[in-house]
Design a protein around this nucleic acid. Sequence first.
DNA 1: CAGTCATTGGCACTCAGTGCCGCGCAGCCA
DNA 2: TGGCTGCGCGGCACTGAGTGCCAATGACTG
Lengths: 226, 226
Amino acid sequence: MTSRRILDTKYRISETAMALFLKEGYANVTVEAVAEASSVSRRTVFRHFESKDELVFPDHTERLGLVERCLAAAPEGSDPVDAVITATAESLREFLSRPELVLRRYKLTRIVPELRKREVVEHERYVALTRSYLRDHLPPDAPPFQPMALAALIDAIHRSALGNWVRGGGATDPEAELMAGMEWVRRMVDHQSAFSTAPLLLAVLPDTPQTRRMLTSLKDAAEELP
Amino acid sequence: MTSRRILDTKYRISETAMALFLKEGYANVTVEAVAEASSVSRRTVFRHFESKDELVFPDHTERLGLVERCLAAAPEGSDPVDAVITATAESLREFLSRPELVLRRYKLTRIVPELRKREVVEHERYVALTRSYLRDHLPPDAPPFQPMALAALIDAIHRSALGNWVRGGGATDPEAELMAGMEWVRRMVDHQSAFSTAPLLLAVLPDTPQTRRMLTSLKDAAEELP
DNA sequence: CAGTCATTGGCACTCAGTGCCGCGCAGCCA
DNA sequence: TGGCTGCGCGGCACTGAGTGCCAATGACTG
């Protein structure tokens, strides 16, 4: 286990680094300068961070562990897609618990291509986790691309909700957006499986105002289902 | 326009580099060594490639241009999702036109984390392209996460098909897999939009052998539609 | 033949990242 | 109190990626 004291200095270094990057530009700030501003040696910076760009993502490995624990804690027989959705919601909550960090990071990643690349790689680590979980827990008769597709889909919605929140300066409700998106996913997956396995009963009706009204009530009723 | 002569030396350097990386290990090969083995100077290597890891992805910028042209060539009123699917299929075909490059790259990216990261970043450039296209061409009443979600989904299926092909040593039919996955996407999206906009007509029927048979024929008929 | 553009080579320089060693400062035991 | 141990840190030297600058070579044009 990593001690609290180490985590403190790690976050301290990260904060001074991000402040410097924002003020002077990422390329214009050497690791040496970060070390000086943080009152540590250059060698110590590289003990806490693998590389210069990681200075902007001090929380990521922690969050990855959180998601891993979430997935492992899911009950045995439960729906794997639900488990991934829950873990994603947890990850989003964790993100929102450090709003200043997320907002400053956003500013940096929009400006500095190097950091944007790193952000993409970090997200991939997270997607890889959920993907392998889905691979292990999805029914074996599912199409082979489903684990990869669903993991990418869920991550995209996660990023979209978080992105809208950050772009809006904190005005939106990202957890609600996430849940709305996840409903979309759930419904799509359910529709899919309904057509392949469940006993669906269909009929063609004349297109009259009456039948249209019936359709509308059916649609409304369907959307209110759990 | 880049001249053919430049492209030739570029690919020549890339090939000798990949051979060296496979033989001696990525970290053990300096750019200096690549330059020597390619009979060019170190400076020239860095004129053709931005960085050492780009040596393994000499075709990527080309392919990105291909996708861009494909999307731009899509007819005005056509379905944007179809346009993206077509462009993705084109990109896959382009991939398959260099099987040796793809297979060697796969070996490298599985072994070398650095190169895997770079691969992820390269894919993100492609997803960003389709995402922004979808953002511009999807109907404005679509959910805000749809561009991001669909782009991620389509790319995931693309990667899955290509990945299965590479892992299988060239045994599978990636274009068929791609199309199957895209059918899945299309059906999911259509179900979704059918429920929200199109005049769908539904009725509940008694669950009898007759109605079940009718359902089966309906389902088969629906799957044969373009 | 002179001039221009494109491609390359060579050189020097910055800086990220690593290995190694020694120091200081806890805590722990006698 | 004194010695022992382990962890976190600083200092230093070194490799190698990536860049800027200028000169040289070669092809193409008027």
